[in-house]
């Protein structure tokens, strides 16, 4: 049975290494600061005991005050999972670092979040629209798209 790791426990471990990376954490998820996403992800992937080698899913959600990207990570070796969240408060030109260098599976999923929610990922090798055509105006999965 895959155990879902408690957010507080993992954020304590992250906090020891990167003191101000965690914004808040609760039982279910860990919310990170946008700039520290790449180094925390590297830490989560390589630390023995955590070893999150499989990125299950990336989703973009539009809460009206901020845009959020949710990462579901799984570790095949230890059979546990974790939920990471990152938030962007800028609605005009939101930007986050890309995790493609750590997990190749993020390639198409980040392009989809860019296409439908509008968040640009810096460091992505080929960031362009994937599901809609080039020249489509707007980002459909935002709440203010009608």
């Amino acid at each position: 049975m895959t155990t879902a790791l408690s957010g507080q426990e993992v954020s304590r471990q992250i906090g020891e290494r990167f003191p101000d990376a965690v914004l808040q954490s609760d039982e279910a998820a860990v919310v990170l600061r946008g700039e520290s996403l790449l180094e925390v992800a590297q830490f989560l992937k390589t630390t023995p005991g955590l070893e999150f080698d499989y990125l299950a899913s990336i989703s973009g959600v539009d809460y009206l005050d901020y845009l959020e990207v949710v990462y579901h990570l799984t570790s095949m070796k230890n059979n546990h999972s974790l939920v990471l969240k990152v938030r962007c408060w800028d609605r005009d030109k939101p930007s986050l670092p890309s995790v493609v260098s750590l997990w190749r599976g993020a390639d198409f999923q980040e392009r989809e979040v860019y296409d439908l929610v509008g968040i640009a990922f810096s460091g992505h090798p080929n960031l362009k629209r994937i599901l809609l055509w080039e020249g489509f105006e707007g980002h459909p999965l935002r709440r203010d798209y009608l």
Binding site: K128, R129, W133, E134, G135, F136
Partner: peptide, 11 residues
């Protein structure tokens, strides 16, 4: 990207 833009215009 050029190919994509041309097709997008056609659409």
């Amino acid at each position: 990207l050029e190919l994509d833009r041309a097709e997008g215009l056609a659409i």
